[in-house]
Design a protein around this nucleic acid. Structure first.
Lengths: 331, 331
DNA sequence: ACTTCCTATGTTAACGCTAACATTCCTTCT
DNA sequence: AGAAGGAATGTTAGCGTTAACATAGGAAGT
């Protein structure tokens, strides 16, 4: 079915330039000594024939495929889309391409994707928020010459890790609320499967006294789930004066619930979110939240991976702290 | 630098199973006749050695690389991120991977990216909203066995095209406004470089009488640029009772400008946007706008490309219509 | 002049796989 | 029994590139 147009090969160039294939290869790769005159002649032919090296063949002989894999749970999620943008930028700077794999939170698919990437001989993988079990992960990651895990710890050898300091971020939010005089804080916590939800919850527990009656869980964090959770929580704990939410969407819902409950934000109760999505600064009152520059985060992640690929001593474990964004909902 | 662990090859399997490499290849590919007994034996060895075919080598001999390229101007833009998610889903169904390339609106980079993808022997490319000039595009696209252009026409041979019916969508918005009794409509039009901005403007001009005094241009469509443009327009045309905006962000800004101007939405003036971003249904008044299911659009785009790759007669030109989403800002 | 030692280039084989052709060994038919 | 034909498997070569080794030719030293 696929009809590929015949490509110009090194052999073609060699014939026209009247040298051996190896000489052409050397010219292309700037390797060994080549007489300037020969180099020029070869270059001219390359130009005339519009020759470009076949990367597939190169990958077969050489040690590199100049391709990395990026595995995300959902590329349609702006969080991962922006990280991916950052990764792609750095990859391109290193003359690399990115094979993007969306797992849709399915660990089985994640496993298949990894095997496929290995079969395609990628030089490294970046795995964002994997849903794979601890006992599966190391074996899979160790297939790759280099790998980097975002927001997940692992025992795999040679795996670098970049973590968001979710717990620390929530601690800062709590401290900010307490500095503002808030004394009775509740939390709307996220789904149990996700690493960050667990970390944020841990942060809240360690910063407060961790009374479980002050915590309400939601499986997926959206405006309406945040709304309902806040309603439940406020019914149970009417005297709350601060509310920490797993993310901004939940916080938006929670604010609406507070107002429905006759509590003004931030007058009667302060509400904070996490992530600083665009909506956070567009609603009223504007939301106090945590921010990370996700594009820069992606660049940092990619740089860490390429350090590994290039054999430099990469940072085994890097922790990225959130920035506290103070707005009207918790001034 | 890169140390790849030695892979199990067909030769290894062949040796252990005591057959020729070709027989193993046949078993893997379900080709030709194989004695059931032999097949079983080979399968067992494949399983024991955990053999997986090397896709790079396959690509070199075979006609397919089982990889497509997706070129977008900005993957961090949710519009393209969701389309990409749809594309990836379908690609995976076809046992394909996606090389994602972000061009950041730079035509030079786009050209380089295409050459790279060709060198990596992708079986097809999807190009979203290219910024390349008409005289460059065909030559580049014709390098690929299959290609699909989103939101851009071209004279390239064998290029399929999927277009959004932007103009028709705006016409429908205008008709909706007029059906609601609005008589004097203005427009905030988008940047000149983008195809869709041009199409939306054309739609507006053809549906109204196209008085240029009623149109205000912004280079990049954001809330604040929409706000400013609406202010300028309202100062010039105080009696407007309907405002069509290039996209939702601009519309949000425009609504704010209307209110600043003492005009209520939708009482005094109706405002409509385009794209149906999440914010559209979250602000007050909720925004009337045009919607396209972007994930489904991505799936459709990918299916079109794979039809081409698989040699079926693909649809040369497909036009996708928006759906009118009527909300409070223009009921 | 002869060895030595670079510099510039060539030759061969291999990467892992499969297309294309070749061979072997049955079965079936006359 | 011998021919014919199909099923099962093997052999060879090639995809485009580069690593590794081989060779030619010239400059320099003795």
């Amino acid at each position: 079915m696929i009809r590929r147009r015949r490509r110009v090969t090194i052999a073609d160039v060699a014939e026209v330039a009247n040298v051996s294939a190896m000489t052409v290869s050397r010219v292309i790769n700037n390797k060994d000594a080549i007489k300037p005159e020969t180099r020029q002649r070869v270059m001219k032919v390359i130009d005339e024939l519009d020759y470009a090296p076949n990367h597939i063949a190169r990958s077969l002989t050489g040690s590199r495929s100049y391709t990395i894999g990026v595995i995300v749970v959902d590329i349609a999620n702006p969080f991962f889309a922006e990280i991916t943008a950052g990764i792609e930028t750095v990859a391109w700077q290193h003359h690399y391409n990115v094979i993007l794999c969306n797992t849709q939170e399915d660990p089985r698919r994640e496993r298949q994707v990894m095997r496929m990437l290995e079969a395609k001989q990628v030089d490294g993988v970046i795995v964002c928020s994997t849903r794979l079990a601890d006992d599966d992960l190391p074996r899979l990651l160790e297939m790759f010459p280099a790998c980097l895990l975002f927001n997940r710890e692992t025992t795999a050898k040679d795996a670098n890790v970049v973590m968001l300091a979710d717990a620390a971020g929530i601690v800062r939010l709590v401290e900010h609320l307490e500095a503002g005089g808030r004394r009775r804080l509740g939390m709307i916590a996220g789904g149990s499967r996700s690493h960050s939800a667990q970390a944020r919850l841990d942060g809240f527990r360690s910063a407060t006294n961790g009374d479980d009656a002050l915590i309400e869980h939601i499986e997926t964090a959206h405006i309406h789930t945040g709304f309902r959770a806040a309603q439940t929580l406020l019914a149970r704990q009417p005297d709350l004066d601060g509310l920490v939410c797993h993310n901004d969407l939940a916080a938006v819902g929670a604010m609406q619930a507070c107002m429905t409950h006759g509590k003004s934000v931030p007058g009667d109760i302060a509400v904070v979110g996490c992530d600083d999505i665009p909506l956070a600064s567009l609603i009223s009152p504007k939301l106090t939240t945590l921010r990370v520059d996700r594009r820069v985060l992606g660049e940092l992640i990619a740089r860490n991976l390429f350090a590994h690929i290039d054999g430099e001593q990469p940072t085994r474990r890097q922790v990225i702290r959130h920035q506290l964004v103070i707005r009207d909902s918790a001034p």
